[in-house]
Design a binder for these strands. Structure first.
Lengths: 183, 183
DNA sequence: ACCTGAACACCGTTCAAGT
DNA sequence: ACCTGAACACCGTTCAAGT
């Protein structure tokens, strides 16, 4: 019986930041943000909670920043011919897939994560040969719209103020047209 | 020496939901959301924390809902001739004045609070004689933009991706033009 | 280097008791 | 009716100790 070198004495793969973030994301997506505790995260990783601090010295703050970073990172498969509409659709899908992280992403002061997102959006604008000053406004307007709309979708019910069922996909597309028509 | 009727045996005004919400808002705006604890709130009200539960039986959940409701409520002084631009500016100012509540407002499932906001926005659209189907899209698009942009302002630094200082007021106004030009 | 166990200073909340 | 005191089951985190 050959023992793998990366298996330690307790016969488990050692902890890593990646595994910790992944497990945390699973808890948040499955049970909600309020259920993410260091002790529960430790359980999920089959480790005492205190072991996590060895990999994340800044503790829970660093864990939450890691979650935001993970969701804020640009979709890896951003095709070279993706336009603004594709980018917005992709980013919205990402936000809704990790709706539990949205409160963190929306309001934690995390310039690095925000910069990553803006950079990927700016890259799309650059490929579209949009002038620099227009691009700055467009980037923030579009990003604001996508984030804000995702928040509405998470907050809202299926009714709008006029007692009609809301098709959020269609509503998002219509708003996107509105924002991009002028851009 | 005349004793006011609303002064109780301990010589203090009795607790009320309004006073509790107001004190909570003061803590959140001054020290941040994470500093809002039932015990600290009790201290601020010169009362044991447990007294709060007599007025808010659902406890902290109800307290947070109350904060969201307070910020989401339409500005009382909405002038009869206010247009969409005025509404958006007023709502943004409200969000930024209570930036600490933003994470709650953005993502707590609170249909009542959202409905209140949408209703006040719809009222402005109605005065502008905007057709019903257009109004539905415009309301969500504009609201999404305002909320999302406020979130960007809170998250961001004074730098944007191109290393230029961002004038958030001007940036908001420019994006607002973009959104409203098409509407 | 990596993890554990016990401990500390907090939380939100319940519940019986006081006035 | 309104508030208090003590208690319970949790938190995040520190720190000495184990391997």
């Amino acid at each position: 019986m050959v023992r793998q070198p990366q298996i330690n004495a307790q016969n488990r793969a050692p902890l890593s930041i990646e595994r910790i973030i992944e497990a945390a994301l699973q808890i948040v997506d499955g049970q909600g943000l309020s259920r993410l505790t260091m002790r529960r995260l430790g359980d999920a990783l089959e480790v005492e909670a205190m072991a996590i601090y060895h990999h994340l010295p800044r503790g829970k703050e660093q864990l939450l920043d890691g979650l935001v970073m993970h969701v804020a990172a640009a979709p890896a498969d951003a095709a070279a011919d993706a336009d603004l509409r594709d980018w917005a659709r992709g980013y919205r899908a990402r936000l809704l897939a990790h709706a539990g992280v949205l409160p963190l992403l929306v309001t934690r002061r995390n310039p690095a994560a925000l910069a990553t997102t803006v950079a990927s959006l700016r890259e799309v604008l650059r490929r579209g040969a949009v002038p620099e000053d227009v691009a700055a406004v467009t980037a923030h307007t579009l990003l604001g719209y996508v984030i804000g709309h995702a928040a509405l979708e998470v907050r809202g019910t299926e009714e709008d103020g006029a007692d009609r069922t809301v098709d959020w996909d269609a509503r998002f597309a219509a708003g996107l047209d509105l924002v991009l028509r002028a851009a």
